[in-house]
Simulated assay, not measured.
Amino acid sequence: MYQERPEWEDVIPLPQDDGALPLAQIAYTDEYAEAMSYLRALMAKDEHSERALEITEHIIEMNPAHYTVWLYRANIVFALGKDLRKEVEWLNEKALRHEKNYQIWHHRQLIIDKLDDSTGEADFIAKMFQKDAKNYHVWSYRQWLVKRFGLWEKGELEYVEYLLEQDVRNNSAWSHRFFLVCGNGQELTEEIVQRELGYVSDNIFLAPQNPSPWNYIRGILQRAKLPMSRIEKTCTYYAPLDNPEKIKSSHALDILAEIYSTIPEQKDLAIQSLDLLSSTYDPIRTNYWNYRKTQIQKAAA
């Protein structure tokens, strides 16, 4: 207990004040309540010391989601000029134990930004993805790394492809690929578009009903300001309207309806696609497909 330690005897703890009659007072443990009381006292005078650093570690061990403590810790680390590499090593253990804690990754961002060196970060992220390859906080941090250190072409696409080989349905990896291809302000040349069309085609073949590659290529074509008709042949392969029993993808039907709705002489094919979606391949969204069908019919009228 802090009250029994000589090095803390100069500190007057500040207990939490919930008022006289709190409606829903949280039942903190005595250990946590006391530690927070001493932390408040240090924060009140903005103390940056070794003991302040120690108490933040103690509280984070008990409650790793306390973002105020994380921010105070960062300020202390910088003020004392602590070894940032050791702080990263300490963070590694915390991240592996608390996979879904975003405060850890925000703190890591502050430390790595101050360190101005991303060495080893990709390797540690790979460890995190071995536990959960769709961890949102880790992916957000990776995107920050790419932008902060200009890692657009430093093996990022290859790593995304590796992850998609492990799980073609990893929507987070597809999202990161889109970020890499479109997020650097580069022009989507015909060469890039052709590369992405080929890559998507190969992955759709593995799982035609996986929405991720369909959404991905839709985004690529929209960003490149190209018509969806560029993938008409791919769509008709997985959704042959002349042989509905062999349709393998509702997503292909959706895109065909979009393509044909813009061609006056093929609006009947658009309506056929929507009818198939409504009746057989995606009946849970019948109202939506019928709405799109109505819009096409109104436009034709």
Results as ranks from 00 to 15, higher is better:
M1F: 10
R5H: 10
P6I: 02
E7Q: 12
D10L: 08
I12N: 11
Q16K: 14
Q16C: 10
D17M: 09
D17P: 01
A20L: 14
A24H: 12
Y28M: 14
Y28Q: 11
D30H: 13
E31P: 02
E31F: 10
A33W: 08
E34A: 14
E34C: 11
M36E: 13
M36I: 13
S37W: 09
S37D: 13
L39Q: 10
M43D: 11
K45V: 14
H48A: 15
L53C: 09
T56Y: 07
H58N: 06
H58F: 13
E61T: 07
T68W: 10
V69G: 12
V69P: 05
N75W: 07
I76Y: 02
L80S: 04
G81F: 04
D83G: 06
R85N: 15
V88C: 14
V88T: 11
W90H: 14
E93T: 11
A95I: 13
L96N: 04
L96D: 05
R97M: 11
R97K: 15
H98R: 00
H98K: 00
E99P: 02
N101A: 05
W105T: 05
R108F: 09
Q109I: 05
I112W: 11
K114G: 00
S118Q: 07
S118F: 14
S118H: 13
F124A: 09
A126K: 12
K127L: 11
F129Q: 09
K134S: 10
Y136W: 02
V138G: 00
W139A: 00
R142H: 11
Q143L: 06
V146N: 01
K147C: 08
G150E: 06
K154L: 00
V160F: 09
V160L: 09
Y162H: 12
L164D: 00
Q166F: 02
Q166G: 01
N171W: 03
N171E: 05
S172H: 12
A173F: 04
W174D: 00
S175K: 00
F179R: 00
L180W: 02
L180V: 02
C182H: 00
N184G: 15
L188E: 11
E196C: 02
V200S: 04
I204Y: 08
A207D: 07
Q209I: 02
W214D: 05
G219D: 12
P227S: 08
Y238C: 04
N243Q: 12
P244G: 03
I247K: 01
S249A: 09
S250Q: 14
D254Q: 12
A257D: 01
A257E: 04
T262A: 13
T262I: 04
L269E: 10
I271A: 12
S273P: 08
D275I: 06
L276M: 03
Y281A: 07
Y281C: 08
D282Q: 06
R285E: 06
N287E: 15
Y288K: 09
W289S: 07
T294Q: 15
T294P: 02
Q295P: 01
Q297A: 09
A299Y: 14
A300H: 10
A301F: 10
